[in-house]
Design a protein around this nucleic acid. Structure first.
Length: 288
DNA sequence: AGTTGCCCCTGCGCGC
DNA sequence: TGCGCGCAGGGGCAAC
């Protein structure tokens, strides 16, 4: 569920509550929530006990908390994960998976995840980029993201442009909502083959991706329901600014044609039939 | 080697 | 009211 703006909102919210605090204990209430930590729940808790969190970082949809021993706690929210700051006396959430308590007796950090697609792990390399995240491309908010490298890499792909936007090894942080919104702004149908996107069109698309991510971040992200909230349990407001996502059958805000929904990889894509005409011919797939 | 589907889960809203 | 179905902000990984 959460894409870059939502994850960044969570990271920023977490920062002042965790930086400089020392972990007293870690309670794993559901093993699936730490499945990426292959050594298991006991090892996860043992490694973290007594460690001090030195800050908060993010790349794409992943965030991590560097520790005083150069490892880091990595967090991914999946579709329904939350990181909440809660007083010790707050009742356990229904889907509470992991609880962190600190030696100052202050608020706990809780990982709550209804569907358990998200999870936590401990990985070395926390100061720069945890080893586990080596395959994740820089996101477009990263000062070291190189636009022209993205443009070239996009055009080298042999896939459809929406699939490329969702590929976290090409560009990270973009998910189903913001891919659809950026494609609408760019006037491109998601099924357009990447090799036919011109360099200027690719640059424009990247600009729209950046714009929509920034605007959503300014609104605290997109919340359709109680599943996405910040560390204090508050919703974001970008849902009011969505132009196509989830607006099937409603008028396009640019041309009033009715927004269409198309099946896409067991999910949905939303687009304007006039502003984003489907490519005449779908990508030719190599055979044999 | 690059690309494509499947599948992991829980809950909600809808139609019958 | 109750059941079954489809759908949901993601990504790893086996199979082509």
């Amino acid at each position: 569920m959460p894409e870059l703006p939502e994850v960044e909102t969570v990271r920023a919210g977490l920062d002042r509550f965790v930086t400089g605090r020392t972990i007293e204990s870690v309670e794993v209430l559901h093993p699936r929530a730490i499945r990426r930590h292959v050594a298991g729940a006991q090892d996860f808790a043992d490694q973290l006990k007594g460690r001090t969190i030195t800050g908060t970082r993010r790349r794409g949809k992943y965030l991590w908390l560097p520790l005083d021993d150069d490892a880091a706690i990595i967090g991914h929210l999946g579709m329904s994960g939350q990181l909440l700051v809660q007083p010790a006396e707050a009742p356990d959430e229904t889907h509470l998976r992991v609880r962190f308590t600190f030696d100052d007796g202050g608020p706990q950090v809780r990982f709550v995840d209804q569907r358990t697609f998200g999870g936590l792990s401990v990985s070395p390399g926390g100061a720069e980029l945890p080893d586990e995240l080596a395959h994740i491309a820089r996101d477009p908010m990263d000062p070291l993201f190189v636009d022209e490298e993205f443009v070239a890499a996009l055009r080298r792909r042999r896939t459809d442009v929406k699939r490329a936007l969702l590929d976290q090894t090409l560009i990270s942080g973009v998910g189903n909502i913001y891919a659809d919104e950026a494609l609408w702004r760019a006037g491109l149908h998601g099924n357009r083959p990447t090799e036919k996107i011109t360099r200027p069109a690719a640059r424009r698309l990247l600009g729209h991706v950046r714009d929509v991510l920034n605007e959503a971040l300014g609104q605290g992200g997109t919340s359709f329901d109680a599943l996405y909230v910040n560390v204090n349990g508050e919703s974001g407001y970008f849902d009011r600014s969505l132009n196509v996502y989830g607006r099937s059958g409603e008028p396009c805000r640019r041309c009033a044609a009715l927004v269409r929904r198309e099946a896409f990889m067991n999910r949905s894509s939303y687009s304007c039939p006039k502003c984003q005409p489907a490519p005449r011919q779908t990508r030719v797939r190599s055979v044999g």
